[in-house]
Simulated assay, not measured.
Amino acid sequence: MTSLDIIGQFEQQGSCLMRYTTAGQLWNLIAPREFIDFSYTTDYQNGLLSCGISVEYGQEQTNFVRGFNHPCGWFCIPLKNEPDYSLLTGFIQTDLRGMLPQTAVDSAMANSLVNFYIELRNALKI
């Protein structure tokens, strides 16, 4: 993920419209993508639950392909025996759209997810 912006908020607390982008992959064989998602985040078992789905909204930015996320979610739940740590579980159903060889999609998605978790871990270190 290269950017994340809240582009709209709703009266319901925890609800927003988010736009995020990804960089091109495999020497730009897979063009940069943008996603527009409705997101809802709430407390869950002393942690957080965040769920979302892509929505059709606005014009696609130049040089980006509009991807689509089917219903997805993230759970972040503190570990009972180690209060300084949490378990992060994600469920993602992404359609990158565009004309892509499936092997390229599989490789790029796997690398992107590994990098996401590495960057998340590094960002959370205090």
Rank of each mutant, 00 (worst) to 15 (best):
N111E: 10
L96M: 13
N46M: 03
M1V: 02
E60K: 15
N111S: 11
P71H: 05
N111H: 10
P32L: 08
Q45C: 10
S112F: 07
G52F: 05
W27T: 14
G8P: 02
G47Q: 05
I30G: 01
F38L: 04
S50C: 10
E56W: 09
F64D: 00
N81A: 04
S39R: 02
G47V: 03
T62Q: 13
C51K: 06
F75W: 05
G58H: 06
M109K: 06
F91E: 03
M109I: 11
N122D: 15
I118Q: 14
V105P: 05
M99D: 12
D37S: 02
M99G: 10
K80Q: 12
R121S: 09
Q9R: 12
F10T: 05
E56L: 15
L17D: 00
F68M: 09
Y40T: 07
I36Q: 00
Q59F: 13
Y40A: 10
I30E: 01
G47M: 02
I53W: 00
W74E: 07
V65L: 11
K125V: 15
N122C: 10
L124M: 13
N115Y: 08
C51M: 15
F91W: 01
D5R: 14
S112V: 07
F75T: 04
I92V: 12
N115R: 01
D84L: 13
S15K: 11
G67F: 06
G47I: 02
G8H: 08
G24K: 12
T21V: 04
F91S: 15
G98Q: 13
S107F: 10
L100N: 15
P78C: 11
Q59S: 12
L120W: 12
F35W: 02
Y85R: 11
T89G: 08
T42V: 04
M99P: 04
L124Y: 06
T21M: 06
V114L: 10
Q102A: 10
Y40I: 03
C51R: 02
D95C: 12
N63G: 00
L87V: 09
G14F: 01
N111V: 08
P71N: 06
F91H: 10
V65T: 13
Q102Y: 09
W27P: 04
L48G: 03
I30A: 02
L48V: 06
G14P: 03
N115I: 15
K80E: 13
G67S: 05
G24I: 04
L48E: 06
S86I: 08
S39K: 03
G67R: 06
C51D: 06
E11F: 09
F75P: 05
R121Q: 11
Y40P: 01
T42F: 07
A31F: 09
S86R: 00
Q102D: 11
A110P: 06
S112D: 05
L113H: 09
L100K: 06
F38E: 00
